[in-house]
């Protein structure tokens, strides 16, 4: 089964050894990528990903920190994609199996994970009830990112504004 919506905002970058997929609509601005590896992931540069600015191992390490499917990766040598260790969190086989043409269940976290990001939002992941404006909604195997700086234009959600305002906390 193909998901059309996943293709429209797709971008990919390669260094010949691995391909990194970028899905902007999935980004919750947790900011691991550019905090860890600004040489490769620089939001102020176009194109913002430079695959030649760090080793393959280091790029894989940082892509695996992304809490969403915004950044995923796979080996260009398809043979190597057949035996991926579960600690390679953002390999496409776990996050975006449609890119491998095979279905694999994503890892589900329980209890709910609540991460207060350094100088950034609160990233909440798992199965939970979300109550906003008195409306209660059951959120399943999902990720939301809540603004902590008070400056977002999409409150209560983070829109990345903390980076511009220099929020610390």
């Amino acid at each position: 089964m193909e998901r059309d919506s996943s293709v429209s905002d797709e971008r990919k970058y390669t260094n010949g050894e691995i391909t990194v997929y970028w899905k902007p609509s999935a980004c919750v601005h947790a900011s691991y990528c550019y905090r860890e590896l600004i040489e490769v992931f620089d939001p102020g540069r176009r194109p913002w990903v430079d695959m030649n600015a760090a080793s393959t191992d280091r790029i894989i390490e940082v892509v695996n920190m992304c809490p969403t499917e915004a950044l995923t990766w796979k080996w260009n040598d398809d043979q190597k994609n057949n035996s991926i260790s579960p600690d390679q969190f953002n390999h496409v086989s776990f996050r975006r199996p449609e890119l491998l043409h095979e279905q694999t269940k994503p890892v589900i976290v329980s209890p709910v994970s609540v991460k207060v990001m350094t100088d950034g939002p609160i990233v909440i992941k798992g199965n939970f009830t979300f109550i906003n404006n008195g409306v209660s909604k059951e959120v399943r195997e999902s990720i939301i990112s809540i603004c902590r700086c008070g400056s977002s234009s999409h409150l209560p959600f983070c829109d990345g504004q903390h980076r511009k305002t220099g929020f610390t906390g």
Binding site: P111, V116, N127, F130, N133
Partner: peptide
């Protein structure tokens, strides 16, 4: 649902239940 996540109007975020902070 393992936890409850509530946006309190003009106030903080309340989280209760089974979660790791």
């Amino acid at each position: 649902p393992e936890a409850e996540v509530e946006i309190l109007e003009s106030g903080p975020l309340r989280i209760s239940g089974n979660f790791i902070l």
